[in-house]
Simulated assay, not measured.
Amino acid sequence: MNPAPTPVGPPEPFFEQVGGHATFEKLVRRFYDGVRDDDVLRPMYPDDDLEGAVWRLTAFLEQYWGGPTTYSQQRGHPRLRMRHASFHVNPDARDRWLGHMRAAVDELELSPMHDAALWDYLERAAHAMVNTFEENPE
């Protein structure tokens, strides 16, 4: 006699597969450790709101990857390009952002599949945020 088949449900969200909130918080905090000392990116963040930036990016990424929908509940639709329109995001800023994010992703030591999926999204998002090719803000 064959054993009863194991019920198959929906796949576990990426958010859960990589460790949930703790993983995304570690990612974002490590990213902002790099931003703190970056002379191009740091001025984009108000001194009194770096923790707010940590919360927003963590909540956004968690929601994007199948975690809690807290970001949209509190801030509405992400509208990433609109929210970044006031910042001078040129290729240098994008590349610096990606450099700090790459260091943060590497520290997570994700499986190759999860690393590749996360990195693909982050690269695409960073390229989409470029809104000028001018070297210096006016």
Rank of each mutant, 00 (worst) to 15 (best):
P68Q: 12
E109G: 12
Q73A: 07
S72L: 06
F60R: 03
M113F: 14
G99T: 02
E109H: 15
Q73Y: 09
M44K: 04
L61D: 03
G66C: 07
W55L: 09
D49Q: 12
E135G: 13
V89C: 09
A116G: 13
M129F: 04
D48N: 08
L27T: 01
L122H: 00
A93S: 02
D92E: 15
H21Y: 12
P11M: 06
G19A: 02
E109D: 10
M129E: 04
P112R: 09
V18N: 00
S72T: 06
S86K: 11
T70M: 05
Y32E: 05
G52I: 07
D120S: 14
A4C: 10
N90T: 03
F15C: 01
F15Y: 11
A93F: 03
G99E: 00
P46Y: 00
A59W: 00
G99Y: 09
E12K: 11
E16H: 14
V18S: 01
V89H: 11
D106W: 11
S111N: 07
G67C: 01
F14E: 00
R42V: 10
E138C: 06
D120W: 06
T6M: 13
G34Y: 07
G52R: 00
A22Q: 07
P112Q: 04
E62M: 09
D37Y: 15
Q74F: 14
Q17Y: 11
E123R: 13
M101H: 04
A85I: 14
A116M: 08
N90E: 00
K26R: 12
